[in-house]
Amino acid sequence: MATLLITGAAGRIGTALRPRLSAAGHDLVLLDERRPDPPVGDRERFVEGNVNDRTALEAALPGVDTVVHLAGIPTEDTWEALVEVNLTGTKNLLEGAAAAGVRRVLQASSIHAVGRLPEEDAPASVPGDRLPRPDTYYGFTKAAMELLGSLFADRYDMSIVSARIGAFGERPSSRRALRMWSSPDDLARLVQATADLREPGHHVVWAVSRNTGSPADLRAGEAIGFHPVDDASAVLDADERDALPDEDMRFLGGGMTDLPLGRRTN
Rank of each mutant, 00 (worst) to 15 (best):
G128F: 02
A234W: 11
V67R: 03
A10Q: 03
G25T: 02
R35W: 06
V29L: 07
D217K: 06
L148E: 12
A71V: 02
G72V: 05
D196Y: 12
E222H: 14
R103N: 09
A24H: 09
L131W: 13
E33Y: 08
A144D: 07
E44R: 14
P127S: 00
R12D: 13
L147H: 10
P200G: 14
V126M: 03
R35T: 09
L117S: 03
G11N: 00
V68E: 02
V40P: 06
Y138A: 07
D53W: 15
P74T: 14
L61K: 01
R210E: 10
I160L: 14
V235M: 13
P19S: 11
L87M: 10
T212R: 12
L5E: 10
A195I: 09
D246G: 15
A216F: 06
W181L: 09
N86Q: 02
T90E: 05
G8N: 03
L31S: 08
T136Q: 09
V126K: 03
S209G: 03
E44V: 10
A124V: 12
P260S: 12
P36F: 02
H112A: 08
E119K: 00
P200E: 15
R176P: 02
S182R: 00
S214N: 08
P245M: 01
D129G: 14
G72P: 04
A9G: 11
N86I: 05
G262C: 07
P200V: 15
V83I: 13
E119L: 04
T75N: 15
N86R: 03
L5Q: 00
S159D: 08
D230S: 13
S174P: 03
V114D: 07
L187A: 03
D237E: 11
V235K: 11
Y156C: 13
L148H: 10
G139N: 06
D196P: 11
F140V: 15
I165W: 00
R219G: 02
T141E: 07
T3I: 09
A16H: 00
F251L: 08
R264L: 13
R155K: 10
E95C: 11
L57P: 05
E247H: 05
L148F: 04
R43D: 11
L218W: 04
G25S: 05
A108D: 01
K142M: 06
L218H: 07
L82C: 12
G49K: 11
S162I: 07
V83A: 07
A108N: 01
L57T: 07
I6V: 06
L31F: 03
T55N: 14
E247F: 04
E240W: 04
T257K: 13
K142P: 04
H202T: 12
V68D: 00
M256K: 12
V64K: 02
L17A: 01
P19M: 12
F251P: 02
A71K: 04
A71M: 02
E119A: 06
P132F: 12
L236S: 07
L259E: 14
K91L: 15
D129L: 03
G149Y: 02
D32Q: 04
L57H: 08
K91M: 15
I73G: 05
R263M: 10
G253K: 06
A188P: 05
G96T: 14
R171Q: 08
